[in-house]
Nucleic acid binder design. Structure first.
Length: 447
RNA sequence: GCGAGUAUCGUCCAACGGCUAGGACAGCGGUUUGUGGUACCGUUAAUGAGGGUUCGAUUCCCUCUACUCGCCCCA
């Protein structure tokens, strides 16, 4: 039995390694672009309409920025950041979120000298080394809004309104959930109360919830563990512990939402994971058409499409002027698109094309370059397949692309200075002067 | 970080432990080198990686990797 090349130690039969994208990173292929374009266009439009200005931020920042803002002890900072030491020995991190950097920018560029609040929006990728799952990737895109420098509750409302309207415009059926978690001071008292309440029932708690009780008691409120659901009902509610200003501001936010006819649900269990939040917090979740499933299945984990809240302490925490208030929100683009697909939002997937240019032979190909350019500069979307030879194939493509008109240019036409216009629906053909073809086609398409 | 499931052409799906791993769609090329919406013919192309059991593994076992779905967390 002859030895295989491998056994001999040959390397010439080794297949080249096939590279794959990294775990949790994905390619957004041409087919999906209609969704992405639709979301991005709508986001840009609504943000601009509400006089937010676009900002583009670097993907890499000093690690410290996120440790300070997002907070040590959060999962994001403790185990989900793409951090490394760069060649100049700086500890850097691929941004896991953008709020901290927007604040950094606000401070670094002295934006406190601009009319307040400074309203900014961004659209870009974020990075978290989490386990990939439905609607969760290691690189994911967010559309975000930040308004820094105003503590007016109407800003809170405005940002919620924008998020809601955007999703609505994209054809989604969503619910706004809202709560207030007060100032850090009032929250501290509340947390003590909450902990002592749950401590009575310590024995009934699951392991995860026991850990939460130690580490992050607020999280008990949105725990999905079955044992805790009943206990939650009688747990102290944060609303009752709010300081007067927080309470009044919260009421105002709700009034503004009423006025703007944005439907919302008060959710006393809504807390947010990032350290910097204060007062208003909200999330937007898709309304899943719930089939009648087992009662237990009812409160299935809904992935929030986005959320946000006030972060009045963050600017100061990052070295900005004392007491600078701020409010912001972020929406997850992948999740929005997922929801659009799940809710079967109608979308036009066909590339719009009016004219398809077919050429035959080298002379026609050459001449075709200028014919094609004439159509393009006249603003008529024109398809082509200069790389193809047979007319049959080219007409097939014209057909698949649903072109209304095909142009046929062969050797003979080049010599005569003419070109054939073929109506793709009727099959009727017309030979015209190549110099007038754009004009004639324009007329046909117009009528 | 934990749990469950899955892994075959570009895509969707076949193949009792046994023949050259098969089909559909897509792609490419044809059906007198100038006419699409049909048809016909041809053709490209895959067992995720590594080990083990076996005369023989796509099939059974182990490890790894990836994907999917949960938990945790979050967008």
């Amino acid at each position: 039995m002859p030895k295989t090349k491998k056994e001999i130690g040959g390397i010439d039969d080794k297949k080249p390694k096939v590279y794959k994208s990294l775990r949790g990173f994905r390619d957004i292929l041409p087919d999906s672009q209609v969704y992405w374009d639709k979301v991005e266009d709508a986001a840009r439009k609504i943000a601009t309409d509400y006089s937010f200005d676009r900002i583009r931020l670097p993907y890499l920042e000093q690690t410290q920025l996120f440790e300070r803002s997002v907070g040590k002890g959060t999962d994001i900072v403790d185990k989900e950041m793409f951090s490394f030491v760069d060649p100049s020995n700086t500890k850097v991190t691929l941004r896991p979120e953008a709020t901290a950097q927007v604040v950094r920018t606000y401070i670094e560029h002295g934006m406190l000298n601009k009319p307040q609040p400074v309203k900014l929006w961004y659209f870009g990728p974020m990075f978290r080394h989490d386990r990939p799952q439905a609607g969760r990737y290691r690189q994911f895109w967010q559309f975000g809004l930040e308004a820094i420098g105003s503590n007016e509750p109407i800003i809170d409302a405005q940002i919620i309104i924008i998020c809601f309207r955007l999703l609505k415009e994209l054809g989604l059926d969503v619910t706004v959930q809202i709560n207030s978690i007060g100032t850090p001071e009032s929250r501290r008292d509340y947390i003590m109360e909450l902990v002592s309440y749950f401590k009575q029932f310590r024995r009934q708690l699951s392991e995860t919830d026991k850990k939460r009780l130690q580490k992050n008691p607020l999280r008990l409120l949105d725990s999905k563990e079955p044992e805790i659901q009943e206990l939650k009902v009688d747990a102290p509610q944060i609303v009752d512990w709010l300081d007067d200003t927080s309470k009044q501001d919260f009421m105002k936010v709700l009034e503004y939402l009423d006025e703007a006819e944005v439907p919302y649900e008060l959710n006393p269990f809504l807390v947010r994971g990032l350290d910097y939040y204060s007062k208003t917090v909200f999330e937007i979740i898709p309304n899943v058409t719930r089939e009648v499933v087992n009662e237990n299945e009812e409160e299935k984990s809904q992935n929030a499409l986005g959320g946000g809240g006030r972060y009045d302490g963050l600017v100061e925490m990052l070295g900005g002027r004392e007491g600078t208030p701020a409010m912001g929100a972020a929406l997850g683009i992948e999740r929005i698109i997922l929801a659009m697909k799940a809710q079967e939002v109608p979308i036009n997937k066909q590339r719009e094309i009016d004219v398809f240019f077919c050429q035959l032979g080298e002379a026609a190909r050459r001449k075709g370059l200028s014919v094609f350019e004439q159509f393009r500069s006249a603003g008529i979307t024109t398809g082509e397949a200069f790389g193809k030879g047979s007319l049959k194939t080219q007409l097939e493509m014209a057909d698949k692309l649903k072109a209304k008109v095909a142009l046929i240019l062969g050797q003979k036409e080049v010599l005569d200075g003419t070109i054939i216009i073929r109506d793709m629906e009727s099959g009727a053909q017309e030979i015209v002067d190549v110099k007038k073809v754009v004009e004639i086609v324009q007329k046909q398409l117009g009528g």
